[in-house]
Amino acid sequence: MRELSGGRLAALVVLAAGLGGPVQAQEPFVWRTDLARARAQAAEQGRPLLLVFR
C-alpha cells in the first residue's frame, strides 16, 4: 500500500465515504459536523461514532 500523509488519508476517508463523487449516489454517507447532535443521533440509532479530527 502506498504511503499516505495524514492529510491525504483524511481526504480519502472523506472521499471514500461518499462526499463529492459517484459513490454518494450509491451509498449516502453524510459527514456530521455537529458533534453533540451526532452523539444524540448515535444513541438513538445504537451506533458508534467515527470521529476524524483534522
Partner: peptide
C-alpha cells in the same frame, strides 16, 4: 472495503 467497514459508524468531522 473502507466504505463497507465505515458504514456501521456515524461519521463526524471535527476541525
Amino acid at each position: 472495503e473502507f466504505r463497507q467497514a465505515a458504514r456501521p459508524y456515524l461519521p463526524v468531522r471535527v476541525t
